[in-house]
Each structure stands twice: as structure tokens, then as C-alpha cells.
Amino acid sequence: MTTDTVGRFERSLDELAVSVAFTSAAGATDRLDAVLETPAVGVPLPFDGVSLPERVAAEPTATELADARTGITPATFAIAEYGTVAIESRAAGDEPVSLYPEHHVAVVAASDIVPDIGAGFDRLADRFAAGGDSIVFATGRSATADMGGLVHGVHGPGEVTVVVLEDR
């Protein structure tokens, strides 16, 4: 990862109307707290020294999921070229937590931002070889043009924020 890659990622997110926030790992919890709207649900964040804010339901039930306004998940990696975050399906529920709430907040380590889709597929293949079985490349907000005009937020989130951990 280079500064250039992070800059490229930021520009791609900007074009997708996805907000981005930069923080150190130490400041991450506060940063997330500032970004989210309650009710919020989340899954454990596998970054050293980073935990979910207290007002986030960390082991959500179906009801909490359905009612949540914000869902927080980690991204295994991100692709700068397209502004893509790679969300891995884990038993904790990353997939539904990133999908059901209106606002998805994805947390990614700066060192996990790869420049282009080729590097993204390298990472994907590595994860699959190491036992991962499902990854979604999520790029921007859920959208449809089926109702006579472009509308965001259909079955998936209409708002997306990416929080980049600068020192991870």
C-alpha cells in the first residue's frame, strides 16, 4: 500500500458518493461512535486495539438486525481502483449486518487497500485457499433503475461509510 493507493481509493469512494473517514486504531472506537446512528448492530472487528462502540449490539438478533439503522463490519481488503470493500461471510454475521441496515460502515486497515482488481483477486484467491468460502465485493450503494429513475438503497444500504485505519 502506498499513499497513492489510499488517495486513489478515496477518489473512487468520492465518485460513488461513499463517505470516508481516516483514523488511528486508538481513535477508531470514538470515530465509529461519531459516524453511526442508532439503533446499530455490528460484528467483532479483528483489528488490534479496535472494538465496537458500546451502543452497538455486538451479537444482534434477527429483530435487532431488522430494526438497525447502522451495521458495522470489517472489510478483509479494499480495491482502490473501484472503491470496493471486500466483505467476508463469517459465522458472526458480517453478510447480513453489512446488508440489512440502511447505513453500512466498513472498517478497513490501510495496509489492506490494494491498488487494482487484479490484486483484489489475488487476495481473494489467498483467502479461499486459506479456508474462506464467501466474499462480497461491495462497491457503492445499493441501487436500482427499475422504477423509472435511479434510486439508491433498495434491498441493501443506501448509505455507506468506509473507516480507514491508518496505522493498521
Binding site: 438486525l65 461471510s89 459465522a91 479461499f128 468460502d133 464467501s134 462480497v136 465485493f137
Partner: peptide
């Protein structure tokens, strides 16, 4: 440039069902 969601899943997956 890219579709919103490219889901690559090797089911049955670890993802919990939403019951």
C-alpha cells in the same frame, strides 16, 4: 465501472441464517 455487489459464495456458507 463495476457492479455494486459481486457476491462470490461457496455454499453452504458460514453466514448465519436470519431466522
Amino acid at each position: 465501472p463495476l457492479s455494486q455487489y459481486v457476491t462470490m459464495l461457496s455454499p453452504p456458507t458460514n453466514s448465519p441464517t436470519v431466522d
